[in-house]
């Protein structure tokens, strides 16, 4: 399916059907990341049960150096 991740169209395998699986796919599951799905912030504990559908807008953010 095709998702819009951080503003870019990205195709991912159909079997990556939840947010947790998506993070695993990109090897981000051990990182401190925050996910927003279709403009709604997703709590960490809901990542494994939240299903993705074609065209979903996903934001994946993290902490970077800043003042």
């Amino acid at each position: 399916m095709e998702l819009i991740i951080n503003g870019e169209k990205i195709r991912i395998p159909e079997d990556e059907s939840t947010v947790a699986e998506l993070l695993q796919h990109f090897n981000l599951h051990h990182k401190v990341v925050i996910v927003e799905l279709n403009d709604e912030i997703l709590a960490k504990e809901n990542q494994s049960e939240t299903r993705l559908s074609n065209g979903d807008k996903v934001e994946i953010v993290h902490f970077v150096g800043g003042g």
Binding site: I5, N6, G7, I10, F26, N27, L28, K31, V32, V33, I34, E59, I60, V61, H62, F63, V64, G65, G66, G67
Partner: peptide, 28 residues
């Protein structure tokens, strides 16, 4: 202090300063 930014999802191995810290010692 930290800033919040989009992650480069294709560079998961990129180190992040946060991972180098003992977070029990610091308030973010």
């Amino acid at each position: 202090t930290f800033a919040v930014r989009r992650m480069n999802i294709f560079e998961a191995t990129q180190p992040n300063f946060l991972e180098k810290l003992d977070l029990k010692k610091y308030t973010l």
